[in-house]
Design a protein around this nucleic acid. Sequence first.
DNA 1: AATGAATGAGAATTCATTCAT
DNA 2: CATGAATGAATTCTCATTCAT
Lengths: 192, 192, 192, 192
Amino acid sequence: MRLKDEQKFEAIIRATLELTHEKGLAGIKMSELARKAGIATGSLYTYFEDKQDILLSVDREVRSRGAAYLMQASTDDEENYEGRVKTYVGQYADFVSANREAILFIDLLQRSPFMTERSYQDTVDQYRFTLELVEEGQNAGLVREGDPEEMVHVIDSIIKMLIDHRQTHLKGAYDEEVRNRCKEYVWAVLKK
Amino acid sequence: MRLKDEQKFEAIIRATLELTHEKGLAGIKMSELARKAGIATGSLYTYFEDKQDILLSVDREVRSRGAAYLMQASTDDEENYEGRVKTYVGQYADFVSANREAILFIDLLQRSPFMTERSYQDTVDQYRFTLELVEEGQNAGLVREGDPEEMVHVIDSIIKMLIDHRQTHLKGAYDEEVRNRCKEYVWAVLKK
Amino acid sequence: MRLKDEQKFEAIIRATLELTHEKGLAGIKMSELARKAGIATGSLYTYFEDKQDILLSVDREVRSRGAAYLMQASTDDEENYEGRVKTYVGQYADFVSANREAILFIDLLQRSPFMTERSYQDTVDQYRFTLELVEEGQNAGLVREGDPEEMVHVIDSIIKMLIDHRQTHLKGAYDEEVRNRCKEYVWAVLKK
Amino acid sequence: MRLKDEQKFEAIIRATLELTHEKGLAGIKMSELARKAGIATGSLYTYFEDKQDILLSVDREVRSRGAAYLMQASTDDEENYEGRVKTYVGQYADFVSANREAILFIDLLQRSPFMTERSYQDTVDQYRFTLELVEEGQNAGLVREGDPEEMVHVIDSIIKMLIDHRQTHLKGAYDEEVRNRCKEYVWAVLKK
DNA sequence: AATGAATGAGAATTCATTCAT
DNA sequence: CATGAATGAATTCTCATTCAT
């Protein structure tokens, strides 16, 4: 797998995300996928075992890229907690905006029959940094009591909804304004 | 269509929601759907034009039932605004919990090859009551400034996330505790 | 079969002919046939065994009516042979015009898989009168030499074509003019 | 469509004509058609959209070949008009005899649920040469008066009937004798 | 008898996967 | 390796026939 052409591998991933965005998981046909990736149908099988392999590989790839991004998100030099949270939320919002297709893909795959097993741990790992930020706030008495994990999910859903709503329903572009609203709403939920 | 038996119509809708929950949209086979609904495969075509017609009809049906439920939700005799919001959120949470399959279905259908077009208006109608509640709060100076429609979506996503997280990740049943947390988080987002 | 309602039997025959005219044999659906005949689908099976039985029955019925008509065609009191031929052709043309649907039906059924066997004799019987008229002319030295049976078929096809062409392509009604042209062309073929 | 193999396209057309001849239009099954054409069922869909597309394509193909044949039919070096007509009728009869399946197919397709619309023009084009020959004869005072188009149809039906009668009813082969009879009968109809 | 919904065998169609070029 | 036509198993859909009302 993935012998010669790293570029084609990339193209297939991109095509999968685009196609999922357009027609959902159920709408992915190997022939269309190939066309979108600019290769022949048969060539898909040079890079991947079968259809499920493509989907799971895209999932893996996209998750690891997301984790990498969130890992390197820095909040260090901010003085107070609220500021650090907002900085982080801003970064997270940027990431979500830049990776809407990937996020949708993961979301759909999660609840699909293609997903045989998916360790819950994966998801936890991904949110480790956010989780720690929330727990720190709780320890400092700045954040409301409650299951931090649940709170992370709520935060996550708020940010995704704000960005999706802006782009899908209002046809507007992601901008500083949405970014700030993410910060506001998240902080409203967190603060004691 | 739908000549004889209202019960069969119902059975098909129920079977569609169950099957979608179990295997995703792509996993719906007419034969299995018929078996689950307790009728012959061919009979599906007595009630519906084709597969897409089934899915779009289920979508329509489920949406209109949701809208009907939310319309009749009463908050009248509560004295103060906060109390009325929380009563409403509680009812909303009950509804979401009782209709998870339907909500998943709508969500998946949205991005699927079966969905040709979907007027945004549909969604707005559904949220009319919630929208009015938010606007009332803003007029009374009790709710934060901001696009009320966006706020409604945020509220919606918070409630759905809380319930989904409890049931999917924590394998817990929906109960008074989750219900209360919905109220808390929503109020935190709304209040000035 | 054909117990109570002779009228329904008639209606089914008429519906079959109409439907065949509109969509050909391949386009006959039991449900549509029933609707056109003004009865329920299931009722077709009260009058006929199955689909093939309908088609063969219609064939039998229509043929026997045609034969009856042609049998009673009279040419007796005309003085000369040419006049008798033309009188007969006129009557035959009237018949063809009045029974276009039935004639088309027989024609299509002839070459269809529904027609398991069809004794050649049937056809010959039908044309007996015409045949005798031709043979009489040959014996009197008024008609060209040649296989009389073949000649009858040629005459038949000329008349049908003239009437069909007028009605189908020219959208015109059958009238004295076409009737006369039938006589002319037929006599041109026959006369020595 | 029709990307690779012109031969397969040909095979499908041939198979369609054969199958129609054997079992009628209603008897054409995609699976059988594929078997007869020597390809897999699914491959039919590489060359054609669906069943209707096959039938209409065969119709188009067969008509255009017929038109091409009749176009190139030469009558040039014959001295007199009668001779030229007879030469042409002979060629026409050869063509009809060699293409009975195609002619049957067109005839059946005409009145079938597959035929949506069929411009009358198509047929006229096909007969252009015959038409001109008749008109020439009329102008020279050698051919009877009358609508030339109608006359062409009559001629056409005579030739088809003669050949069909010989082959179907008399089980005889097409030969010089039938060919000559075609000439005789047609000339009898035309000549003034 | 009449009705028309229900049935399911069978035909049409789709599409992941293979394979000859 | 790349290609895209070919394959046929799996699925959707049709419709003659049956049957409960």
